[in-house]
Write a protein that binds this DNA or RNA. Structure first.
Length: 287
DNA sequence: AAAGCCTCCAACCGCCTATGG
DNA sequence: TCCATAGGCGGTTGGAGGCTT
């Protein structure tokens, strides 16, 4: 039996696209728009499978595609997102304007996976690596009073805990703007709220998908409470992070944070992005 | 110069999900 | 509820071009 192919392969061109095929495809899509890929080849006069047309358009001909090498910042972001989301290339690509999932996947397989292994980033089990965070790329938000530049000193031994301290994290006002980085941080806060299916937001599925990934990562890192607590300021959400007494005392006694700390998401990421962060040890936290 | 090897990436493949009848 | 279809995704392949010997 076997699976029915997406289209008849007989008489179709395969392999690399020619310049003339590209021209025909681009002209057709510019005139008629995307979609209806199965019928597109016939209507456009192309001897190609519809899937092949779609792939060629999305990965090569689309006008928004960014040309040129992956920049350091992009590379850094890919690494961070990969740690957070795994091999979910389309989600990662969604956070890199102009880059395609295929491009990122190829770049990862050919370049970054090796780098990650060489640097021990893949196997590293620190809290920061598990969270998918990379110190280099963190941009501190000036609104926070949480982050300081020096690393906290970790306790030498794990202390079982009976109670949890909470760090409230709320989006900074700047997170309500449109710049990609702050918007992304704000997005994550919304993600955690599990947008309902009937949400007016068109990419709620993407958000919920990312939220699931983020939650699982947070759980891996023994952060016990990741729920969004309540609405504030017309769209922002409180985010409550629970840590053990040991960690809390460590951070506070080392002047790493103040009591009743409120920070934006970027600052939280920066805050957690410390190799010596102690709570990778399960005994530090109630889970 | 040429053969062999390696790397990169465009393209393909098969599976999964969403959608509509 | 079932089925067919289309679109989307991640894994894999294979060829072109660069590099090494």
């Amino acid at each position: 039996m076997g699976r029915r192919p997406c289209c008849s392969k007989e008489g179709l061109n395969r392999g690399a696209w020619t310049a003339s095929e590209d021209t025909v495809l681009a002209a057709y899509i510019q005139q008629h728009g995307e979609g209806n890929w199965r019928n597109l080849p016939c209507r456009a006069g192309l001897k190609r499978c519809g899937k092949s047309c779609r792939l060629r358009w999305l990965n090569y001909l689309h006008p928004d595609i960014k040309r040129g090498n992956i920049s350091e910042d992009e590379e850094d972001l890919i690494i961070r997102l990969h740690k957070l989301l795994g091999n979910r290339w389309s989600l990662i690509a969604g956070r890199l304007p102009g880059r395609t999932d295929n491009e990122i996947k190829n770049y990862w397989n050919s370049t970054l996976s090796k780098k990650a292994h060489v640097n021990g980033m893949v196997q590293k089990s620190s809290a920061s690596s598990k969270l998918g965070l990379n110190r280099k790329s963190i941009v501190k938000n000036p609104t926070t009073k949480l982050v300081r530049s020096k690393k906290p000193i970790s306790p030498k031994s794990a202390v079982p805990i009976n109670s949890l301290r909470h760090i409230q994290v709320v989006p900074a006002m700047s997170s309500l703007g449109d710049s990609p980085s702050t918007f992304s941080a704000f997005h994550n806060l919304q993600d955690l709220q599990e947008l309902p299916k009937d949400s007016a937001n068109t990419d709620h599925e993407l958000k919920n998908s990312e939220a699931e990934a983020l939650k699982s990562r947070l759980k891996e890192n023994t952060i016990e409470d990741y729920g969004c607590k309540n609405n504030l300021n017309g769209g922002g959400f409180n985010y409550s992070l629970s840590v053990s007494d040991a960690i809390y005392q460590d951070w506070t006694t080392n002047d790493f944070l103040e009591g009743n700390t409120i920070a934006d998401m970027d600052s939280l990421i920066s805050f957690l992005n410390v190799e010596e962060w102690p709570c990778v040890n399960d005994s530090f936290i109630n889970v």
